[in-house]
């Protein structure tokens, strides 16, 4: 693995979709450079292209044109299998709707990324237990998602995103489905993990309070990305987010 992990660059990335005769350009030349360990927020109204951007950064989608460089390696031309592998090894997802698998226990949910890289069940469960303990869910290992609160589900989801030691944690509206207090706790956990494990965190949000917690803030609008302002890293982790 090339060091440092978690550095990524998008160079003039464009993405367009064609529905019948109509071509819609969702990303219009996005340039983005994120260093390893950065804590970045991207804000934007709906339809601004932020989900598409996240899908490309998360290796679920490929740019129509432009380059996507991950830890010095151009991944824009990779095939589906290679992208799946890379996604498994490199990216952890946290979704607004949690997206836990409803039939699996918390521990089994956390195991899923490890299973797809061929880790044995016993070993995977051990790692899952450790990371669930880290996020404060050590006493809920055998609970199924429907037995957990929203905040607890998101903690399990964060554990699942991190269990495979990814370089990049992608969070799409991670607090969008949570009440204010739970949202604060969840953000606090993300900030801690960023500081503690050095994982690069990219949060897509429309919540300014969430964005304020991040060291770098960007805004996407009309398929174009702008950096707003930056704070020196280190002053982020201690600041509890406050909602407007």
């Amino acid at each position: 693995m090339t060091a440092p992990r978690g550095a990524l660059r998008l160079i003039d990335v464009r993405k367009s979709y064609r529905v019948g005769p109509v071509t819609t350009e969702v990303l219009r030349g996005v340039d983005l450079e994120i260093g390893a360990g950065d804590l970045v927020s991207i804000m934007g109204p709906s339809g601004s292209g932020k989900t598409t951007l996240m899908n490309i950064v998360g290796l679920l989608d490929r740019p129509s044109t432009g380059r996507h460089v991950l830890d010095g390696r151009d991944v824009s031309g990779l095939g589906d299998d290679a992208l799946s592998r890379l996604r498994n090894a490199h990216v952890g997802f946290v979704f607004q709707a949690f997206h836990l698998l409803p039939r699996l226990t918390a521990a089994e949910n956390v195991c899923v990324p490890l299973v797809y890289r061929g880790t044995g069940r016993r070993k995977a469960l051990g790692r899952a237990r450790a990371i669930l303990e880290r996020v404060g869910m050590g006493d809920r290992l055998e609970h199924r998602p429907d037995q957990l609160s929203g905040g607890q589900k998101q903690r399990v989801a964060i554990a699942r995103a991190l269990v495979g030691l990814p370089a990049l944690l992608l969070a799409d509206e991670p607090t969008g489905a949570l009440d204010a207090d739970t949202a604060d706790e969840t953000m606090g956990l993300l900030l801690e993990l960023n500081a503690e494990q050095g994982v690069t965190v990219l949060i897509i949000t429309h919540d300014p309070a969430v964005a304020r917690c991040c060291t770098r803030r960007m805004r996407i609008d009309g398929g174009q990305l702008h950096e707003e302002d930056s704070r020196p890293p280190g002053s982020a982790g201690s600041t509890a987010p406050r909602r407007a």
Partner: peptide
């Protein structure tokens, strides 16, 4: 469909 998509996001290949 959603379960499949989640698994794919977590790194499942098509053949998995």
């Amino acid at each position: 469909r959603r379960e499949i998509a989640i698994r794919r996001a977590l790194g499942a290949r098509r053949r998995d």
